[in-house]
Design a protein around this nucleic acid. Structure first.
Lengths: 89, 89
DNA sequence: TATTATCCCGGTACTATTATCGGGTCATGG
DNA sequence: CCATGACCCGATAATAGTACCGGGATAATA
């Protein structure tokens, strides 16, 4: 085996990551945010929509930087299925 | 153009990332650390030796988790050419 | 010598990400 | 109606990451 396909868990985690980033972006436009983070607007959109499950570390770090997010907090959150403000149990 | 090649800056940052992780691993063996982080030992070795410049976010996050490193600190450090304990100016 | 453990390397395989292009939708406003 | 802005989508292109394989180097130990 080489380069195992993405697992469903990885895909779901990628979707949570995307939702988190989009939420944090708030009012700012994709274009502005992407240019600021020095990534392509298309790349940002794909990440936000969850179509990229395991983006590169520098990519996420740059975006988190622009959005003022802590990478540790991001990592912790996307590994928890539920959102803090929306805990079920 | 599509999927621009890695810039020299990215390569150097990747090498700093690798050095940082290897330093943080300390006495622990690669095998143990890799298994704990749920990544292939080959992948960990490539990252530590700087042969993978822009690893996936989950990969680095998992390794940093095992090593007890803060992702924010890691990101900040590898963007600074000099190492804290070795600051020149 | 032989064995074990740790790490390194090149080659190979195959998927994933990054990025551009062209087009599409929807809402707002002139 | 037309234009603009913001976002989304599929197709496409090319590089990069993840992973397995076989082999090799070194050091410590028996």
């Amino acid at each position: 085996m080489v380069r195992l396909p993405l697992t469903p868990e990885e895909v779901e985690r990628g979707q949570r990551l995307g939702s988190l980033l989009r939420l944090a972006r708030g009012e700012r436009s994709m274009l502005e945010t992407a240019l600021h983070a020095r990534v392509s607007p298309e790349t940002l959109r794909k990440i936000e929509t969850g179509r990229v499950a395991t983006p590169a570390f520098p990519t996420i770090a740059a975006i988190a930087d622009v959005l003022g997010l802590s990478l540790d907090a991001v990592w912790a959150e996307i590994n928890e299925p539920s959102v803090p403000e929306h805990r079920v149990a």
